[in-house]
């Protein structure tokens, strides 16, 4: 379990001071994957360095398992860092060390004996499925394999918190999926609190239990992933829902956007809605999926003009929040993007 309490980071002094992070509060429980998203320049890397204690916060605290790590001296800090495993963007491997030697690094720093280290390294490589690559150098491994080595290394000292700083950025979709699966597996097996910092929304959908959006050093929105996705008013939820351009609206129909707002949306809502409002419905676009065991989704439909409130109420009865999309809005307009909104 890790929590931040009023964490603030300021670089520089006096008139040149830049506030990079301001008054951040959140906590990540055991067996939780907490994603932090935000555009570049939002303060994500500084946040990562404050969490793995490479940077000291200007004020506020980082608390791991109830212990405040912000007031430690340099030597205590070095020991405290061992409780937090960090997975870096794929280039964090030492080029002149084999996979096994890279994984052994934290053990070497700790002063583990050769025998102990060897045993633990074998166990870790086995855990991430790379036993057969133990003696390969980083340049002989694929991006996904390199990141697995990075994960094994982060786990070497049995941390209770894992920090993934853009861990899947730059990986191909297949490798990303396998890293995400591995992280979820590790969370369940080892009871880790995982902090996943990224700018990739689609990865967040696959990995996170909760999400916070960081912008200009502030957390502007946060919550459980599923509730954000079910909240039609949430900008973060909107940014997270996969969007694509819907089909062309047939003439004489109005375009509506529906968002799954709760767990009770019947699978056959489309025909039910059509009967209730007494109009055939054109399905123009939809994305419905199960995330963390809950069904979430959205749909774009077209139907013949009737009273707006009839449609809204009928949809609401089915657990859907309906919003009419005005005709002025160009059909091909890009989906609202976080950066623009902010």
């Amino acid at each position: 379990m890790i929590s931040l309490d009023k964490l603030t980071k300021v670089f520089g002094h006096g008139p040149h001071a830049t506030v990079v992070l301001e008054d951040l509060n959140f906590s990540v429980a055991e067996r939780e994957i907490f994603a932090i998203v935000g555009p570049s320049g939002a303060g994500k890397s500084t946040l990562a360095q404050c969490i793995n204690l490479l940077e000291r916060p200007t004020s506020g605290s980082v608390i791991v398992n109830g212990e405040n790590l912000s007031h430690l001296n340099e030597e205590q800090l070095r020991i405290a860092r061992r409780r937090i495993g960090t997975i870096f963007q794929s280039d964090g491997l030492f080029s002149r060390r084999t996979a096994a030697q890279n994984v052994a690094l934290p053990l070497e720093y700790l002063g583990a004996t050769k025998g102990e280290a060897k045993h633990r390294v074998a166990e870790l490589l086995e855990r991430v499925g790379l036993s057969s690559r133990a003696n390969h150098f980083p340049h002989e491994l694929s991006g996904g394999q390199r990141q697995r080595v990075g994960i094994a290394r982060a786990l070497a000292l049995r941390p209770s918190v894992l920090l993934a700083d853009e861990a899947t950025s730059g990986l191909d979709p297949e490798s990303t999926a396998s890293i995400v699966a591995l992280l979820k597996e590790l969370r369940d097996d080892l009871g880790l609190a995982i902090l996943f910092i990224t700018h990739e929304m689609d990865t967040v959908l696959k990995v996170a239990d909760s999400v916070a959006r960081l912008d200009h050093g502030h957390i502007v929105e946060s919550g459980a992933l599923v509730s954000l996705l079910r909240d039609p008013t949430s900008l973060l939820g909107q940014a997270l829902r996969p969007t694509s351009t819907p089909a062309v609206l047939p003439a004489g129909k109005d375009q509506w956007q529906l968002v799954y707002a709760n767990a009770h949306v019947p699978a056959d809502w489309l025909s039910t809605l059509s009967l209730t409002v007494g109009s055939p419905i054109s399905l123009l676009g939809a994305s419905i999926e199960t995330i963390n065991g809950a069904v979430v989704g959205q749909a774009t439909i077209g139907l013949n003009a009737t009273d707006d409130s009839t449609i809204i109420n009928a949809a609401l009865d089915l657990g859907l929040v309906a919003e009419r999309i005005s005709e002025q809005r160009p059909l091909l307009a890009p989906a609202p993007v976080l950066e623009i909104v902010a």
Partner: peptide, 30 residues
């Protein structure tokens, strides 16, 4: 040597001397 390696070593609990030895000198040997 990529400065990111120094961060990796420090985050892995290395002392300053260990950082110099493993993340700087060793990587720069060639």
């Amino acid at each position: 040597v990529p400065p990111s390696l120094v961060r990796v070593a420090r985050a892995s609990g290395a002392s300053k001397l260990q950082v110099v030895r493993t993340a700087q000198l060793s990587e720069a040997v060639p």
